[in-house]
Amino acid sequence: MYLTEVKTSDIIGKQFRYKFKSYIGVFSSLVIIQLLGLLFSLSGSRFSSSSAVGYQVDVQYYTVDIVMIFTIFWGFMSAMLLTTKAYREDDFAFITNRFSSNLSTIAFLAVISLIGSLTAVLSGFLLKVVVYLVESEPLLSLNRGGIASTYSLEILGAFVVVFLFATLGYAAGMIIQLHRLFIVVLPAIFLGGSVWVATFDVPIDLFHFYFQEANFLLFLLKMVGTAGVLCAVAMLIANRLEVKR
């Protein structure tokens, strides 16, 4: 009997293409959410005011922070949705196993995270144009210098954060698939943990660990490393999940 031999990498590639077509809907929510974020950003993100002799100087800052936050949340939600039964089993119509299916999903998450962060960073230009057209005051651009002036590095920085949250959503979704009860348990652990840290001043400050890291390389390393761990967790769980369809 002649058996077709397949290369895993080849199948992952095909599944990725298939998933990209299947899940193209994630981009409609991305666009809506980023436009919504831009709308909220039009009122300005920060305001500072200072007075001196004869002067009162107000500075209104416009940033895409809200768009970024929305995009991060979008990544989280989209990834979580992909773990639900209807999506997770989509590729079982064609050649797959759990390993290739997960890898292609993670690759898909990486690509949408990249697209999401790319548009999030670039949406600033749209914000700038709209603010210029709407507001009568002069519009200045702030150049913070250093790596913040390099768009590619900004996109990279945004990407690792969005991707981290996407993998977080993916892993959380998989855990929930393991047992429905985790829908309640996971947020409880999260909230409980936050309260515990806050009340007892426990010196485990995850936020500090991840988001106060000033060294860009270390920052990337922490984000990507954690995302990797989350992917591994998701894959371990997925390996136990059967296809129920």
């Binding site: 077709t4 031999e5 397949v6 895993t8 199948i11 050649i95 797959t96 196993n97 390993f99 290739s100």
Partner: peptide, 8 residues
Amino acid sequence: NDLTVSAN
């Protein structure tokens, strides 16, 4: 979880 079985 066997890719060869799935392919065939």
